[in-house]
Amino acid sequence: MAIAALEVRGLSKSFGANIVLDDISLEVAKSEMVFILGPSGSGKSTFLRCCNRLEEPDSGEILLNGESLTQKNVNLNKAREKIGMVFQAFNLYPHLSVEKNVSLALRKVRGFGTEKANEVARSALDKVGLADKYRSYPSELSGGQQQRVAIARAMALEPQVMLFDEPTSALDPELVGDVLEVMRDMKAAGMTMLVVSHEMNFAREAADRVIFIDNGSIIEEGPPEKIFTAPANPRTKSFLARVSGN
């Protein structure tokens, strides 16, 4: 069997007495798009942040293409290059131009020269449809454009896995489509993606697998067709009923 692109084994995390993640295990195959659903406060975002150790898990193991990220001597900065992350609030650097937002890590982490970094940054921006915005500042862009810059910033480092933390939740409805379009392209190009989102229609159409997290545990998983039409767990059922407004 092929090694999973991302493997999580027995991940647990508590904040004080509050158990946020309780022994979660998950394998994401190469080029697979896995959607994570669950009520707010269920630990989805914490789970995602644990995957690149922005949040330090209490216990458990994370493997990227078979290489552990949780061993003591692992170079975390090197490892994080290989895991792209996109945030709900975009988190672009407001003092840098769009081009520099993307090229900074290429220069400082990859060690590219300015010329090469700019070239790679521009081609990443071209891919998300922002070829005319190199010199703009984040504040001059719409939310949808900002999120696409954030995607380009992560993609420029050629990650092996992309994590999306509610990428469209902060966007006006008419801007959501552009971002989803970019994610669709990424999937078509074979990117491995782990997505926390409430875009049910998109999940149904694009996800290979949907997992449902509640109270820090995976309580159901399966292909989107099955989860959305015939959820087995009553909690999944009631969650889906609530978000679809029925």
Binding site: L54, N77, R80, N91, A105, K108, V109, R153, A154, L157
Partner: peptide, 20 residues
């Protein structure tokens, strides 16, 4: 979020501090 974004691209704590 600025810290998180910068660290997620592999910038070290010092690099994040200096550049971001």
């Amino acid at each position: 979020g600025q810290w998180k974004a910068a660290r997620s691209t592999g910038l070290s704590l010092n690099q994040t501090l200096i550049w971001i």
